[in-house]
Write a protein that binds this DNA or RNA. Structure first.
Lengths: 195, 195
DNA sequence: ACAATGATACAGACCTGTCTCTACCATCGC
DNA sequence: GCGATGGTAGAGACAGGTCTGTATCATTGT
């Protein structure tokens, strides 16, 4: 995503790009405002004119990630129109590849929720809202795939999804993280093979 | 674990108890030395006489958790001697209950690794070592349970385990987190039912 | 008397957020 | 055409707070 181009993007975008990269790679609490402005070559007041506070910048970072995540989801499922069962499996196969990427550092929403534990933090609320949205989409797919118990399958798959995010950073799974796709296939087939 | 008793435990223990509770509940970076000494009623120099640094205290916290985790594991598996398949299922059933506990805040090792991303951090090394140990124990059980492909089952189960840790904090699974036990059972039976 | 501990002040670093000052550049009035 | 104006942005000082870690001194129990 995104190239260098004429090097003159507006300040707001440069700030958000830099913040997104640093927040994701090093963590939200670990990255200070000064680091962000230094790396994006922007004045401090440019940051505070575009974002009310660091919290606000964190929210913008998460909101942009929500859009990107939704686009990724749509892109993968669109390859198997009208076939929710294959769509679900494709999502987990793609997830297995994604966590193999050298830049992968876990799920930005899960990480944000882990770092920001204050229930009143708006960024935390965003992260939890994202997880609920994922849950709803998974549930709808489980229903239309004809799962015997959609609630259960949805819960199992979201467990697996969170596990893949956490594991990619901390564990060393087998080559290609084949465990992700195979576990998903086993659960999906087990839940839909009623007939 | 641990009661109040005569209120006069040595300073080192009081510090470690307080630090463990705060680190686990609020996060490592979010809890400062001053908070720990205030809550444990200890002088700052008593902390620094017993621990070389905050990093050192974090390591002690993780090391104690490793001992407790190993004890929990042994306690659960000891209930089904000589039956690795049931032992594995029992571990996940117990895990499903544990993440329902109101004080549950995820896996302390995963959280530590998420907060401390510097590869040179000794506490991070401890957390990763713990995950490797869990993996080895799971692998041994998968082998002795006669799994068709022990590597795969071990990877799948560790994914599920990490997912349960992450999900308990961020998602709201169904009642009793039954998804954890049911998913584990499905994967274990699927991998061992070769005969 | 002596070792362990409590209390407290302090140094130095870092963090967020505010403020001022300057430079550039487009647009508008004339 | 041309100077004035206003919006955007860079640079950097600064305030007020928090963090880790050290040093000093008083107190307590044995």
């Amino acid at each position: 995503m995104g190239g260098v181009e004429g090097e003159r993007k507006p300040a707001r975008e440069r700030i958000l790009d830099t913040a997104a990269e640093l927040f994701y790679r090093e963590g939200i609490r670990a990255v200070g405002i000064d680091t962000i402005i230094a790396r994006s070559g922007v004045a401090k007041m440019s940051l505070y004119r575009n974002f009310a506070s660091k919290d606000d910048l964190v929210c913008a970072y998460l909101e942009r990630n929500m859009v990107q995540h939704a686009a990724w989801w749509d892109r993968v499922t669109a390859r198997h129109p009208g076939n929710p069962r294959t769509q679900m499996k494709a999502l987990f196969t793609a997830l297995g590849h994604w966590i193999d990427h050298p830049k992968f550092q876990g799920c930005p929403f899960t990480s944000a929720a882990a770092e920001l534990r204050d229930p009143a933090n708006p960024a935390r609320a965003l992260a939890l809202a994202h997880k609920r949205m994922v849950r709803d989409r998974l549930h709808a797919m489980a229903v239309s795939a004809g799962a015997d118990d959609p609630d259960r399958l949805c819960g199992q798959l979201q467990l697996l999804m969170e596990g893949a995010y956490a594991a990619g950073r901390v564990l060393d799974l087998g080559p290609g993280n084949e465990a992700v796709a195979s576990a998903a296939a086993a659960l999906i087939d087990g839940a839909c093979a009623e007939k």
